[in-house]
Design a protein around this nucleic acid. Structure first.
Lengths: 178, 178
DNA sequence: CACAAGTTTCAATAATTATTGAAACTTGTG
DNA sequence: CACAAGTTTCAATAATTATTGAAACTTGTG
């Protein structure tokens, strides 16, 4: 009896990939993107080569329209690239595999959606005139200013993280926290 | 003509508060909590005193059930406290006004929902055995390891931010980025 | 320019998530 | 313990968001 015979792999590679796609899909829903978007991203991340719309439809069992729109959104986010093959009409897609780049894209997209928009509304409100002698006004204004300051700090932190070079900020963080 | 006569306040305090509640509600939706939850939080943040369920229902035009569940969720998150008044059945609620505390609560809740759960699933997958001679397996494993490392760094960063004392980490960040 | 092989759009529909409101429950008091 | 004054639960419904799939569109080629 071969000594490795009795240690069967728990999952085949294909099964592990499928599970990753599933997991990433669930996580995506928690992150505020659609399950399909996360799954398409996951599938492209673990596929060595580029995939066509047809491949995505088939492997994830989604419609052509869904595949088309989702892929376009991933292209907009910068998480996926088009791969054109000479002499072929069909478009292929390949994921950005460098996790530093992926992180940057995700931070950029989420910052825009979650922070920038709020900041714009707050700036407007915080500058409103009011009677500085009115205690209620002062309280309101103080709360708003606090929130604004927080938003500003978060903004700058995220901007730095986004621009970080692997060599500098990133390594610094890894060293600090690993 | 008094020189200030022709500069009427653009909004009254009440209007500004209403607008803040609205803004915070819209932002809340982008942050992955329900609009109502964000609005209740906003209203409590800008109210000098504590409010009852009845007050919330009336001011935000929401049902009793909604108010009750939303307030409980905010209590669970640690963003809102109960205020009990001797001799009264009715419960009043007051928001945590210290923005450092508020930030901690939000980080904690979001980390749990968005990161911790994903990390658990990933850890399981990344430890799967496979044939190290298989290039496809190595690629898959490398991607997973990268993601895992990223998740770990994010986790530690957020944990630090969460435990940060105003005097230390917080000021450091403010200085670094303001 | 007609056609083949694709992609994109978008109205209809399905799936999901949030909200209502009435009934059940809780708790303090005479 | 009966009642008053609240709170909570949860099934039904409303609102929102995601998905489908067919029609319109695009683009390269004989």
């Amino acid at each position: 009896m071969n000594p490795t015979d009795h240690i069967p792999p728990v999952l085949t590679l294909a099964e592990a990939k499928a599970q990753f796609v599933h997991t990433w899909g669930v996580s995506g829903a928690n992150w505020g993107v659609s399950k399909t978007l996360a799954q398409v991203h996951a599938l492209l991340l673990v596929s060595p080569g580029a995939l066509s719309t047809e491949d995505l439809m088939e492997q994830l069992k989604i419609s052509r329209g869904n595949a088309s729109m989702t892929v376009r959104e991933l292209l907009d986010m910068g998480l996926v690239y088009k791969e054109l093959r000479p002499g072929e009409r069909r478009e292929y897609f390949i994921a950005e595999k460098d996790m530093l780049q992926v992180t940057r894209c995700i931070i950029r997209v989420r910052k825009r959606r979650e922070l920038d928009q709020m900041k714009r509304s707050l700036d407007q409100l915080a500058n409103l005139p009011g009677d500085p002698a009115d205690a209620e006004y002062r309280a309101f204004h103080a709360t708003l200013t606090d929130i604004q300051q927080l938003a500003t700090v978060s903004d700058k932190l995220l901007t730095r993280l986004m621009q970080a070079e692997r060599s500098w900020f990133w390594d610094k963080f890894i060293k600090l926290f690993t």
